[in-house]
Amino acid sequence: MPQTWYVTFEVHKRGTLPKRRSPRETRTFESEAEARAFAREKFSEGLIVFAGTLNPFLPRRLIPSSDIPSWIEQDRGEEVGGHDDKRDPEK
Results as ranks from 00 to 15, higher is better:
1 M>S: 15
2 P>H: 07
3 Q>L: 10
4 T>K: 03
4 T>A: 00
6 Y>P: 02
7 V>W: 00
8 T>Q: 03
8 T>F: 02
8 T>L: 09
9 F>M: 05
10 E>A: 03
10 E>G: 01
14 R>L: 04
16 T>D: 07
16 T>A: 05
17 L>Q: 08
18 P>S: 06
19 K>S: 07
19 K>A: 05
20 R>I: 13
21 R>C: 08
21 R>D: 03
22 S>Y: 15
22 S>H: 12
22 S>W: 15
23 P>T: 15
24 R>W: 10
27 R>G: 06
28 T>D: 12
28 T>C: 13
32 E>A: 06
35 A>N: 14
37 A>I: 02
37 A>W: 02
37 A>M: 02
38 F>N: 08
38 F>C: 06
38 F>K: 01
38 F>G: 01
39 A>Y: 08
41 E>Q: 06
41 E>R: 04
41 E>L: 05
43 F>Q: 01
43 F>N: 08
44 S>Y: 06
46 G>C: 08
47 L>V: 09
48 I>W: 06
48 I>E: 04
49 V>F: 07
49 V>K: 01
50 F>W: 04
52 G>D: 00
57 F>T: 13
60 R>V: 12
61 R>F: 14
62 L>A: 13
62 L>V: 15
64 P>V: 12
64 P>A: 11
64 P>I: 13
66 S>P: 00
67 D>Y: 11
68 I>W: 11
69 P>T: 13
69 P>I: 14
71 W>C: 15
72 I>T: 02
73 E>P: 12
73 E>A: 15
75 D>H: 07
76 R>Y: 10
77 G>R: 15
77 G>T: 11
79 E>R: 01
79 E>K: 05
82 G>V: 10
82 G>T: 12
84 D>H: 13
84 D>N: 13
85 D>P: 10
85 D>N: 06
86 K>W: 13
91 K>Q: 04
91 K>E: 06
